[in-house]
């Protein structure tokens, strides 16, 4: 008997009003995410993956179905309190441009009423954690940082209030491939170290395969398949097979270019 899942989606549905009638963004999705799991949600634009993520911390409300966190229906939790308990990493950082790096990282503890001295110490720890030099970065404004540094600050901000769960919306999408890879593996290490439960959205199946324990594939609001990379590789679902074509071809090419015995 597996342990109680940390996040459970049961028959969740969300419609948005559109110019040509209502658009079903999330259509009857049921999914369980175990404590300590790293789940990637993959899908094209309009697949409903971002909507599912926003439903999780009540940035929007579901039309029907239930979402439970640690067994508790989130509709019974104050949405502001809920969001302070869950870490959130946004596309290209979304740092507040008028606040310093330290103020950005310390924002959620500040909202929770943590004393300033405690926040300052926490900010320094977090800068170490995301491998940014304390002195050089603490008092800078986000504009003075590179894309990769910004997203490291974004991760530090999400972790500031010691959440158990981190939601990430295409966190590394706007970065160059090298930074993206480094940041991805650095975050994966943090996920392990801090025993986080992470839900990450990406449109890049390769990134999902490399980072996640399990991958949920969405299309037109429906959950097409959920499984480990190996399970997905053996899927007979045509859309999943189509998604797997690119990483397979890349893997084959790389294998041919970089023979295991050869030294580059």
């Amino acid at each position: 008997m597996p342990p109680t899942p940390l996040i459970t989606y049961s028959n969740v549905r969300k419609r948005f009003p559109g110019p040509a009638g209502a658009v079903v963004a999330v259509d009857d999705v049921s999914l369980e995410i175990a404590e300590g799991e790293f789940l990637a949600i993959v899908g094209g634009s309009g697949s409903g993956k971002t909507t599912l993520l926003r439903l999780t911390n009540r940035l929007i409300e579901a039309d029907s179905g239930t979402i439970r966190i640690a067994g508790e229906d989130i509709n019974g939790i104050d949405p502001v309190g809920l969001r302070r308990r869950i870490g959130n990493v946004f596309q290209s950082g979304a740092l507040f441009p008028h606040m310093t790096v330290a103020a950005n990282i310390g924002i959620t503890p500040k909202l929770l009423g943590t004393p300033a001295s405690e926040i300052a110490a926490r900010v320094d720890d977090l800068l170490d954690l995301v491998q940014l030099d304390r002195k050089a970065h603490r008092d800078r404004l986000p504009d003075a940082l590179s894309g990769g540094q910004r997203q490291r600050v974004g991760v530090a901000r999400a972790l500031a209030a010691r959440p158990r769960i981190v939601l990430m919306d295409e966190p590394f999408g706007a970065l160059d491939p090298l930074t993206r890879d480094t940041l991805g593996s650095d975050y994966r290490a943090l996920h392990e170290k801090l025993a986080l439960t992470t839900v990450m959205i990406t449109h890049d199946i390769t990134e999902a395969l490399l980072l996640a324990d399990r991958i949920a594939v969405m299309r037109s609001g429906r959950l097409v398949e959920v499984g480990t990379p190996t399970e997905l590789a053996g899927s007979r679902e045509p859309y999943v097979s189509e998604l797997m074509t690119t990483p397979r071809r890349q893997a084959a090419r790389l294998k041919a270019l970089l023979p295991e015995s050869g030294a580059a």
Binding site: L59, R83, N88, F90, A94, L95, I107, L111, L112, A161
Partner: peptide, 15 residues
């Protein structure tokens, strides 16, 4: 004001 920043403000737990 960038809609993404307003979403982020709510996301980090602001009323």
């Amino acid at each position: 004001v960038d809609a993404g920043l307003i979403e982020a403000a709510k996301g980090v737990g602001m009323t």
